[in-house]
Amino acid sequence: MLPAVVAEFTSPGPLLFQIGPIAVRWYGLLIALAVLLGLVVSTRLARRRGIDPGLITDLLPILVLSAVVGARLYYVAFEWRSYQGQWLEALAIWKGGIAIHGALIAGTLSVWLFCRWNRLSFISVMDVLVPSVALGQAIGRWGNFFNSEAFGLPTDLPWRLTIPANQAIAAGFPGERHFHPTFLYESLWNLLVFGLLLVLFQQGRQGRIRLPDGALTCTYLISYSLGRLWIEGLRIDPLCLIGLPPSCEGGLRMAQLMSILLMLVGGLGLWWLLRQAPRSSAPPPETSR
């Protein structure tokens, strides 16, 4: 018999290094890396869509700031019980506690306002941003690994995640140490979404498929939400719309509800765009550097 292959994940901790009072955390490094790679991808796609790449560069700081603030506000709003009597802790974003749906809502609003101000097509700009969003999510999910958070139910699978005993106790599983690495599942899923969006973008640009403006955004909403829907079902720390933490027993998980709503929005939007799009159209010209 072949020996079992075990790919056990154990976090080295959230701190990358510290010099005096200055601490550099893995989460911050990963966010910076995601922003940098996202800028490279989005500016290249913008150029191929006929959008000035400089506008994407101008938009990025606004988008990142609004997304981070929105993600934190969304999380705190659903975890307000944890911050009663210590509201200053709500500002401690470096300790973890952000929600991607809050980032998507606030980020989308900031893009819409930016496009209104600069007289740009909102859906065209969103189309060149969503591949970077998927890539950024794939990178950022590893921050959950270093923080030993957002993990799933106990498991004995070879690719299990080892959690410190104190955090397992806090999660309500005092006798367990190994859990589903849901950060890994979502990271890999988002990489697939990123690849899908790039392929569709290229196929549409070459005129091989009908890809009206907004279709990539709708595809992102459907594909990302489909993965989040089932991955969220494995997590033991969901944000609860109804029911009590940690498992929303007898209630409703907010991320699953949002995933269903976004899938409906994306599906209806894609159906409407394809109905409205002409049967044949030439790919948009590329702009020169």
Rank of each mutant, 00 (worst) to 15 (best):
F145L: 10
L153Q: 15
L191A: 01
N147I: 10
V130N: 02
G207F: 01
S148F: 07
L198Y: 05
I163D: 10
G172Y: 09
D127Y: 11
D213W: 08
G195Y: 06
G152R: 01
R210Y: 12
G152Y: 09
Q202R: 13
H180I: 15
A150R: 03
G204R: 00
N190F: 04
F145A: 03
L184E: 13
S132P: 01
H178I: 11
F151C: 02
G214Q: 12
F201M: 01
G140N: 01
N118H: 15
H178D: 14
S187A: 03
L216E: 00
P174I: 04
V125D: 11
P164Y: 02
Y220N: 02
T182F: 07
P158R: 10
D213T: 12
R210N: 15
D156Q: 14
T155A: 10
L191Q: 00
N147P: 12
T182Y: 08
D127C: 11
H180K: 02
Q137Y: 08
V128P: 05
L129F: 10
L198H: 08
L161F: 15
D156I: 09
G140S: 09
N147M: 03
V199L: 13
I123H: 13
E176F: 07
G143K: 05
M126S: 13
F146C: 04
R205I: 06
V133Q: 03
A150N: 13
F194I: 05
V133N: 02
V125S: 12
F201Q: 01
L211Y: 03
F173Q: 06
F151L: 08
Q137E: 15
A168G: 14
P154R: 02
P164M: 03
A170Q: 13
P181M: 07
F201T: 05
P158G: 05
